[in-house]
Write a protein that binds this DNA or RNA. Structure first.
Length: 831
RNA sequence: GCGAGAGUGGCGGAAUGGUAGACGCGCCAGAUUUAGGAUCUGGUGGGAUUUCCUGUGGGGGUUCAAGUCCCCCCUCUCGUACCA
């Protein structure tokens, strides 16, 4: 038999075996508990990278472990296959996007299979297939019927390079999330999903997501951005208008000394009409609107503004308040007009300083030493209200409530809750996406495509790369008849944001071939929610928020009865090399194919799990890969050598109640390892320490040899214990290095497959220590140790510690003040 | 600014308030080998050296006992931002 570990020989063999045996096909006909583990599906770029290896290795260990623990495990894979790269590649290489995508899927599927990932490939989905995207269209129509999909003209984020609209979530610091071009603003008629209808539930349900990392929840909460406050009506006499402001600090209403209005505010032209200030205001506004988003959102943007010439009345004080246009007021948040309280808001303070506007102190701080002129705004809500009529003397918190009551009673305004979250713009002016299933009829207006006409298929073989959306030029696609009046009508030519595709794919895996509805109710309810979702932190807001939204919509349509899609979320770190994320431009990419060719898939998997805990970034190390390979090599040799000289043992259970220390040590190591590896996987996916425990297990076994021809009773016990240790090592290693485990299992003469073997339980009596090492501390410092029998009572440990000659010399005749005994661990003597 | 996380050997990383540095890499020594590689054995925080001192970003504190808990500060990473 070959003494050397031959990954290139065994890996393809077992991959073929699993495929032929349908080892990972999951059935619904079982009363075993279900477990749904899912890794975020990839974009089919054509090649997997180390980040993929890492995320799928994590998910695969979980899947294999749960399967051995007796769960029915759903572990599917698919392709997030619509999107711009296919279109760009098509233009460059003159290959249709569908063909390019199919080739990439085939190539990546081969690579995934070469990693030995335990996917149920019979459930594979690809979002670019009509049998998938027809359900995007179906869901869109249901959402349209429920008022959750609507069309409006809006100023939208436009990426000139991608020639399409972007959602707010896809604009990163004023740049396109995909290509880093500066995003501009454009007015277009667009389709939106009314995600804001779900803002409150999306926010409050964050509290139920106890299996999610806190930072992801924080990011979601911040993105939704709820703030509660009050809208107050300030009045303008000439022209007669009501100017609504929104504030979360009604306790500062008596300190308003000016107002700021957004440059795009629709009332602004009316306010300045006919005033001498109008030309200056118009010039200011013009200048501001010409800046692109990168400048508008720049960090150190200087606060600037210009006086409109108009004054509004503060309804609480009757004061005349000058109205300014200011560059820091956002039209998209609140009412687009803010009351300015320079004494208690830092931005207003800076603005007031620059333009020499009055500052009115209305909250005195706790020490009572605030006086004008202020150095900075007093912004935290502590202290006492002053100069605030009947509210003077109140603490800010209670004043907020009392003033809101007063405002509502007097009809001066009302309480409001605002969210930062905007509705999700999903129209894209691109070809390679799901056609939006709507028809424009001159008589009937906007009409949805009848369900029976779905899918509206994406036409093939359109000329790409001639600028703009090719669907707009395809007469066959565009021209249709109105489903209501049958008059000639036009189809919508926009396609959906690809994030729509990924917002419900996890539901589709429950019934991937269902032809009547997107998700089979019974099956979806059986499998959902996903018990463990694994993916990158970069989706903390975008994908995860949209997926939660869609889950709630599908629930409200009546297809599922769960509220949240993902019970537990694991966000794995990046794979980095030389301190930077692996990327082509940095030239620090490690190709998984090369790794698999050189060391095998099991080494690639083992290393990516061993080198760092899953949430942390993983620093790539060629030497570390070697180390993982060496470990597998050693295990291979140990098991092969054992198998060759394996004594024939009876299958009867062995009685270990009376045996030697050597056998007890061997069994203790075996069972302690079972305990450690199981709990490391189950409690927080600490794969790195689980693998370390397996290495220690190997180290212990390699120092102990099986007896070749056991004759005595002790030797028989030892041979049985050693045999069990070897079997255990192979079983515990199988989720991490499945090919190696299968081969070794075969070499040990066991029937295939090790995948069907039950994960072992540890024997509580076997892990008990016989003797313990007790540490003696003097004043908390470790001084020496002694051995004691396990279970020695505290009083005896104390007695022995105090009687020890070394202890006596350390105490040196001083009085003992106190002695602490920690059971079975240490004795601390305080002198 | 705000929010979250992190700071431990030469490196990746371990440590329910109770022996800091598990495991791996690297390095050192030895064995084997014609040699190299591979493999095996032993050692490896720093400083002294026999029985000691010191050490988890810095400074305080709580405790018999702190990498771990509390307070202040520094640095780094990620996210996010004129949100009224």
């Amino acid at each position: 038999m070959d003494k050397n570990y031959p990954p290139r020989e065994i890996e393809p063999r077992w991959q073929g075996f699993w495929e032929k045996q349908h080892t990972f096909k999951v059935s619904e006909e079982s009363n075993q508990p279900k477990y749904y583990v899912l890794e975020m599906f990839p974009y089919p770029s054509g090649r997997i990278h180390m980040g993929h290896v890492r995320v799928y290795a994590i998910g695969d260990v979980i899947a294999r472990f749960k399967r051995m623990r007796g769960y029915q495990v759903l572990h599917p894979m698919g392709w997030d296959a619509f999107g711009l790269p296919a279109e760009n590649a098509a233009i460059k290489n003159k290959v249709p996007p569908a063909k390019w995508t199919d080739q990439n899927i085939a190539a990546m599927q081969d690579q995934m299979k070469a990693l030995g990932l335990s996917f149920d490939w019979e459930r594979e989905v690809a979002t670019c297939k009509p049998e998938y995207y027809r359900w995007n269209q179906w869901l869109f129509i249901k959402m349209f019927e429920r008022g959750l999909a609507y069309r409006k003209e809006a100023t939208v984020n436009w990426c000139p390079d991608c020639a399409t609209v972007l959602a707010n979530e896809q604009v990163v610091e004023g740049l396109c999330w995909r290509c880093d071009s500066a995003v501009t603003q454009k007015a277009l008629k667009q389709w939106f999903f009314r995600i804001t209808d779900y803002a409150e539930e999306l926010l409050s349900a964050c509290d139920t997501l106890t299996g999610w990392p806190e930072r992801v929840l924080t990011m979601q909460r911040n993105w939704i951005g709820k703030s509660q406050g009050v809208e107050v009506n300030f009045t303008l006499e000439d022209p007669s208008e009501t100017l609504k402001i929104f504030t979360t600090r009604p306790d500062t209403l008596f300190g308003v000394s000016f107002m700021s209005i957004a440059a795009e505010h629709p009332l602004l032209p009316k306010i300045i009409a006919g005033r001498k200030e109008a030309p200056a205001v118009e010039a200011f506004v013009q200048n501001l609107l010409e800046q692109d988003l990168t400048v508008q959102t720049a960090v150190e943007q200087e606060k600037e503004g210009v006086f409109t010439g108009a004054y509004a009345t503060n309804p609480l004080t009757g004061d005349k308040i000058p109205i300014w246009v200011a560059n820091f007021v956002l039209m998209g948040y609140g009412t687009g007009i803010v009351m300015a309280v320079p004494a208690h808001d830092q931005r207003d303070f800076e603005f007031a300083q620059k333009y020499e506007l009055p500052v009115k102190l209305v909250i005195q701080n706790e020490t009572g030493d605030l006086a004008l002129p202020l150095e900075a705004a007093h912004t935290d809500p502590t202290g006492t209200l002053v100069d605030s009529q009947q509210f003077s003397g109140l603490a800010p918190k209670s004043a907020q409530e009392k003033i809101m009551q007063y405002v509502e009673e007097k009809g001066l305004g009302k309480r409001e809750t605002h969210y930062r979250l905007r509705d999700w713009g999903i129209s894209r002016q691109r070809y390679w996406g799901t056609p939006i299933p709507m028809i424009y009829c001159e008589n009937c207006g906007v009409v949805p495509v009848p369900e029976s006409d779905l899918p509206i298929a994406l036409p093939q073989d359109l000329p790409l790369g001639e600028g703009g959306n090719p669907l707009l030029k395809d007469e066959n696609f565009l021209n249709t008849n109105c489903p209501k009046c049958n008059a000639p009508a036009l189809r919508e030519s926009d396609t959906m944001d690809t994030f729509v595709d990924s917002s419900w794919y996890f539901l589709r895996y429950a019934s991937p071939k269902e032809t009547e509805v997107p998700v089979n109710q019974g099956l979806a309810n059986r499998w959902m929610p996903v018990d463990q979702y694994v993916g990158g932190i970069e989706h903390a807001v975008l994908h995860l928020l949209y997926a939660r939204f869609f889950t709630k919509v599908v629930r409200d349509i009546g297809l599922i009865n769960i509220d949240e899609p993902f019970s537990n979320l694991l966000t794995q770190g990046m794979v980095i090399k030389d301190g930077a994320k692996m990327s082509k431009s940095k030239g620090n990419v490690v190709d998984p194919n090369h790794l698999i060719q050189t060391y095998g898939a099991d080494t690639a998997r083992l290393f990516s799990l061993f080198a760092a805990p899953p949430e942390k970034d993983l620093e790539w190390s060629d030497d570390g890969v070697q180390g993982s390979f060496r470990f597998l090599q050693r295990v291979w040799r140990l098991v092969v050598a054992f198998a060759e000289s394996q004594p024939a043992l009876s299958s009867d259970p062995v009685d270990y109640s009376s045996t030697s220390t050597r056998v007890k040590n061997l069994r203790r190591l075996t069972h302690q390892t079972i305990k450690k590896v199981s709990s490391d996987i189950e409690e927080g996916y600490q794969f790195n320490t689980a693998i370390a425990a397996l290495m220690s297990f190997y180290n212990g076994l390699s120092k102990d040899d099986a007896d070749k021809a056991p004759s005595s009773a002790e030797a028989l016990q030892h041979a049985a214990a050693f045999s069990q240790a070897i079997n255990t090592l192979v079983i515990l290693l199988s989720p991490f290095a499945p090919h190696l485990a299968e081969s070794l299992w075969e070499i040990l003469g066991k029937p295939a497959s090790i995948m069907d073997v039950k994960w072992p339980d540890y024997d509580k009596s076997a892990i008990l220590e016989e003797s313990i090492e007790v540490v003696i501390q003097i004043n908390g410092k470790v001084r020496h140790r002694f051995q004691a029998e396990a279970g020695t009572v505290d009083a005896v440990l104390q007695e022995r510690a105090l009687a020890d000659p070394k202890t006596i010399s350390w105490i040196d005749g001083k009085a003992i003040r106190k002695v602490f005994v920690i059971k079975g661990r240490l004795v601390n003597i305080v002198i």
